[in-house]
Amino acid sequence: MSQPLRPHDARRPDHAPADHPALPQPKIGVLIANLGTPDGHDYWSMRRYLNEFLSDKRVIDYPAWKWQPILQGIILTKRPFTSGANYRLIWNNEADESPLLTITKQKLAKLQKAAADRWGDRVMVDFCMRYGNPSTQSVVDRMVKAGCDRIVFLPMYPQYAGATWATANDQFFRALMTQKWQPSARVCPPYFDRPDYIEALAQSVERTLGGKRPQKLVASYHGMPVRYLHEGDPYYCQCHKTSRLLRERLGWDEDSIDTTFQSVFGSEEWLRPYTVEHVADLASRGITDIAVISPAFSADCIETLEEINGEIREAFEGAGGQGFTYIPCLNDDDAHIEVLTGVIAENLAGWVG
């Protein structure tokens, strides 16, 4: 009978009987989580991913008896083709993965180095996806087997929303429920108004624009149904605060930045104004030079690389717009890594020196 694999530093505890299993040396885990990505842009990869995503009650909260027949019978028959075609436009063919996965790996490498420089080998940093791979369950399993008896969990969403932050937490807690020896856990708070985060955003604006100032800066956030706001979700307010703080840091006039919402899905009323309609309206009113930034996304993904730099750009130019500048997400920018390292350090307080 084969023996179970153990971490290389596993050993039998002092004074334990000879038949006591070897245990890994205690570590502290830091787990960052992003939304997710399909494994490929083919039909079945897209269908698996969309099924997991759109079956999440945090994302679509309609009763299952009402929603699942629509999802399984109509949406998942057609949407994998259109979504797959959009992913093909931005796919990292060299690595055969989505840009979100590539950027998350780059971000992870920098965070691992920052953690090693600061805390040595006491802290293990890894990443997971809420939907797709690597799954939250698989990475929590790996951390526990490596000896992590405490884990700090950091969802990669600056603003809180039930459909992003809360569902990432849900999945993390589900993974903890399966552990025989459950680690202690801390969940980092949203960082939408941290001064260092606002500074990193402002620097990205200044760097991309190179001293030029567009007629309008559009801060486009992922949308959600208006109903969620009235049910207590703070996302809308946090988005507006991020925009306000960014404008104040840039020193721009009050009407220089517009907050809008993208990625509308379904027939329900969503948060307004809709980005795709708003940029077209700007162009029709003679505002022909704009820049667009996406403060709700920590890494460029299908919603930024294809939707903003594709569909939304086309809507603006089709209505007469001439100058359209997309300001990339913070991705693995050093200032962003410093922000995330700061958030992690604060939530490791008392666990490491």
Rank of each mutant, 00 (worst) to 15 (best):
P99S: 03
A315S: 14
R118Q: 13
A163G: 07
D121T: 13
P195S: 02
N331L: 09
N93W: 15
G84F: 06
V30C: 06
P17S: 14
G29R: 04
T275A: 03
D39L: 06
S83W: 00
W44M: 04
A349G: 05
E269V: 05
S220K: 03
P4G: 13
Y160C: 02
P225V: 13
G318A: 01
C237N: 13
Q238R: 04
P13H: 06
L271M: 12
Y131I: 07
S55D: 08
Q112D: 15
K78E: 06
A64R: 03
S138M: 04
I257R: 06
S256W: 14
K241G: 00
T167K: 00
F153I: 03
G40T: 14
D121C: 10
C239D: 02
Q106A: 15
M46Q: 15
G232H: 02
A345V: 07
Q112T: 07
G211P: 08
R194Q: 14
R88E: 07
Y236W: 09
A10S: 07
A349P: 02
V123A: 04
A349M: 06
L201G: 01
D332W: 00
S135V: 05
D14H: 14
I70A: 04
V279P: 01
G162T: 01
R244F: 02
W351A: 10
I308K: 00
D56N: 11
